Structure formats: C-alpha cells, structure tokens
Lab assay of single mutants.
Amino acid sequence: KYSDMIVAAIQAEKNRAGSSRQSIQKYIKSHYKVGENADSQIKLSIKRLVTTGVLKQTKGVGASGSFRLA
C-alpha cells in the first residue's frame, strides 16, 4: 500500500523539516517494486494522508513541498 510506503520513507529519512515528494519517490522506487504509475499514485496518496491528518505539510502547497508525520 502506497500510504504505508510513504510513512516508511518519511520515518527512514528522519529529517526535522520533513521529506520532499521527490525524496519520498526516490526511497519508494529503491526499496519497493512499484509499477510505472508510481509517481502519480504517490502524489495522490500524499494528498490523502494530509487530508486525513496522518501527514503534516511543512512547506509548499498540494503534493509539492515537504511533509512529516503528524
């Protein structure tokens, strides 16, 4: 599940300011076997996790910027 992968990526990075979408994508692609549409799936999952309150956006708008666990 992409949401689990995103949470794992943010936990692994341990950046106080949060993790960027690009760094999350890079982590997921190197640690998991994902399909061609992974980028758009990650983007959608990040937006969903922010609206449900699992992630907090520290910089930027939408799916860009930095995110950390709430």
Rank of each mutant, 00 (worst) to 15 (best):
G65R: 11
R48M: 14
K33Q: 11
K47Y: 12
S40K: 15
A38Y: 07
A38H: 05
N15L: 06
Y32T: 04
K56R: 11
R21C: 15
K14I: 05
H31D: 02
I10D: 00
Q41Y: 11
R68V: 14
V50Q: 03
M5V: 02
I10M: 05
E36L: 11
S64M: 10
V7Y: 05
A70C: 09
Q25H: 09
D39H: 05
K59L: 09
Y32L: 03
R16W: 11
A9V: 02
Q41R: 11
Q25S: 13
S64E: 15
V50F: 02
V34W: 03
G60W: 06
S20K: 04
I28F: 00
Y2H: 02
R21E: 15
Y32I: 03
G65Q: 12
S19F: 03
A8M: 06
V34D: 02
I10F: 00
K26E: 13
S19N: 02
S45V: 14
D4T: 08
G65S: 13
V34T: 05
I6M: 00
V54D: 15
R21F: 15
R68S: 11
S19G: 03
V34E: 03
Q25M: 15
Q22K: 09
L55D: 01
L44C: 15
K43Y: 14
F67E: 04
H31R: 04
V7P: 01
K59G: 13
I28Q: 00
Q57F: 15
S20C: 04
Q41D: 10
Y27G: 01
I46M: 04
L69F: 05
R68W: 12
E13I: 13
Q11Y: 08
Q41H: 09
V34K: 01
L55P: 01
Y2V: 05
G60L: 06
L44T: 09
D39Q: 06
L55S: 01
V7R: 05
Y32C: 06
K1G: 08
L55E: 00
K59M: 09
A70H: 06
S23A: 11
V7D: 00
G18S: 04
Y2N: 00
K29F: 09
L44M: 11
K26P: 00
T52E: 13
A12M: 05
G35T: 06
N15T: 07
Y2A: 01
Y2C: 15
K43P: 03
S30Y: 06
Q22S: 10
I42Y: 02
V34H: 02
H31E: 01
G65D: 14
K29T: 07
R48K: 10
V34P: 03
S20L: 03
I46P: 02
Q25C: 15
Y27H: 03
R68F: 14
Q41V: 08
S19R: 05
F67R: 03
L55H: 02
G60D: 05
Y27E: 01
Y27W: 10
L49N: 00
N15V: 05
S3F: 14
K47R: 09
R48Q: 11
E13P: 03
G53P: 01
G53V: 03
I42N: 01
L49T: 01
S40W: 13
A9D: 00
K14G: 14
Q22T: 09
Q22N: 09
I46Y: 01
A12C: 14
F67N: 03
S30P: 00
V61R: 13
S3Y: 13
G18M: 06
G18D: 04
I42C: 03
K43W: 15
I6Y: 00
V61P: 11
I6H: 01
K1N: 12
A17I: 08
K43F: 14
R21D: 07
I28Y: 00
I24D: 01
S30K: 10
R21K: 07
L55K: 00
K56G: 03
F67W: 06
G65K: 13
S23G: 05
K59F: 08
F67Q: 04
A70Q: 05
K47L: 13
H31Y: 05
G62N: 08
T58E: 08
L49V: 00
A38S: 06
N37T: 05
E13S: 12
V54N: 03
S3E: 15
Q57E: 12
A12S: 08
A63W: 09
A9R: 02
Q11A: 11
A63V: 11
K56E: 14
G53Q: 03
E36A: 14
N37W: 07
K26Q: 12
Q41W: 13
Q25A: 13
L44Q: 11
I24A: 01
K33W: 06
K29S: 06
L55A: 01
L55F: 01
L55G: 01
K43Q: 11
K43I: 14
H31I: 05
A17L: 11
A8W: 05
A70R: 06
I10K: 00
K56D: 05
K1D: 13
R68H: 10
A17E: 11
Q22Y: 09
Y32E: 00
L69A: 04
V61H: 12
S19K: 04
A9H: 02
A17V: 07
A63N: 14
R48F: 14
N15D: 06
Q11F: 07
K1L: 15
E36V: 12
A38R: 02
Q22L: 10
F67A: 04
I42Q: 01
V54W: 04
S19W: 04
L55I: 10
K33G: 07
F67C: 05
G60P: 06
A9L: 05
S23H: 07
K29L: 10
Q25D: 06
A70K: 05
S66M: 13
H31S: 02
E13D: 11
V54F: 06
I42R: 00
Q41G: 05
A17C: 15
A17F: 14
G35L: 15
R16S: 13
K29C: 07
K43M: 13
R68K: 11
L69P: 04
S30D: 12
G53T: 01
I10T: 01
N15P: 02
Q22F: 07
G35I: 04
A63T: 12
V54E: 03
S3D: 15
V61E: 10
K59W: 10
G60R: 08
I6C: 02
I6V: 09
I24C: 03
A8C: 13
R16M: 11
L49C: 04
S45P: 01
S20W: 04
N15R: 08
V50H: 00
Q57P: 07
G18Y: 04
K29P: 01
A12W: 07
I46A: 01
Y27V: 00
S19H: 04
A38E: 05
I6D: 00
S23P: 15
R48C: 15
V7M: 08
T51H: 12
V34N: 03
T51K: 14
G18W: 04
I6A: 01
K43L: 14
V50M: 05
A63D: 12
V50S: 02
F67K: 03
A63R: 12
T58S: 09
S3N: 10
K56I: 15
S45I: 12
Y32D: 00
S20Q: 04
I28C: 04
G62K: 06
G35V: 04
T52H: 08
V7G: 00
K47Q: 13
S66R: 15
S3W: 06
Q57A: 09
I10G: 00
G53L: 03
A12L: 03
I6Q: 00
V54S: 02
Q41K: 15
S23N: 07
L49K: 00
A17R: 12
E13G: 10
N15M: 05
K43E: 15
I6S: 02
S66H: 13
S30W: 04
Q41T: 05
T51F: 09
R16Y: 10
E13T: 09
H31F: 05
